[in-house]
């Protein structure tokens, strides 16, 4: 075997070795775990900054259908509708207002229309001390009972804010009560939670529960 044949043999052996390595990488012989399935992207509602509801002032601004707020389309002026109560003194919501769920407070004493609505002009609301307010400016109405909360709201501490913390650089947008609270049932509604952290391979949900119990 001359020198040249030996060189060729070495080169051929190297070729085989590297080809084997190529095949091994391709077939993943080192047992690297396969990549995880892609984590789905979040839907747009998750990052949406809109409030839970749209308040009346915003509906006017959006030029939405306001026929629901046109009281005198059905009611007669200067003739306040009479409220009906059942045997337990619970208000009977008339058929025409079936979409209204009465749930203001944990007791039942505040579920009376004229505590807030103005009998003499149904398109206005009235505070406890008799001030008449437009529907689009209802915050002082809520504040006439919920004083500490109004005080917090005025300080920017209760409720949603957005815009600029530095008033010198830009405006702050403070949402009124009815952007988050339905006045007829003001408890903040339950929400679907956004997806949690991906548990990856090891932490499937039953295992989490198991680990916690130890």
């Amino acid at each position: 075997m001359n020198q040249q044949d030996r060189a060729s043999a070495v080169l051929a052996a190297l070729t085989v070795a590297f080809a084997a390595l190529t095949a091994a990488f391709g077939l993943n012989l080192w047992g690297h775990t396969p990549p995880l399935p892609p984590i789905p992207l979040v839907e747009s509602w998750v990052t949406n900054t809109a409030t839970v509801r749209t308040n009346y002032a915003d509906l006017i601004r959006m030029k939405a259908d306001l026929s629901d707020f046109d009281c005198y389309g059905c009611h007669e002026k200067k003739k306040p509708p009479v409220l009906k109560f059942d045997a337990d003194h619970n208000i009977v919501v008339p058929e025409e207002h079936k979409d209204i769920v009465m749930g203001h407070g944990r007791h039942n004493r505040n579920n009376v229309c004229y505590n807030c609505h103005d009998e003499s002009n149904l398109e206005l609301v009235q505070t406890r001390d008799g001030r008449e307010l437009k529907l689009s400016e209802s915050t002082p109405l809520c504040g006439s009972c919920h004083g500490p909360t109004l005080r917090d709201w005025e300080a920017g501490v209760h409720g949603r804010t957005s815009g600029y913390w530095d008033r010198a650089l830009g405006p702050i947008d403070r949402k009124p009560c009815v952007s988050c609270h339905n006045p007829h049932a003001p408890r903040f509604p339950s929400r679907t939670p956004a997806p949690g952290p991906h548990p990856l391979r090891a932490l499937t949900r039953p295992m989490v529960a198991e680990e916690r119990s130890h």
Binding site: A155, H158, R160, T161, Y164, W165, L169
Partner: peptide
């Protein structure tokens, strides 16, 4: 640093998050 609120504050549906300059006595 340009005066705006952080993103987590603006998206919070309940307004549970508050942010500001603590050296300003009128801040939230």
């Amino acid at each position: 640093r340009v005066g705006r609120y952080p993103a987590c504050l603006e998206v919070c549906p309940t307004g549970a998050r508050k942010f500001g300059n603590v050296l300003d006595p009128n801040s939230e």
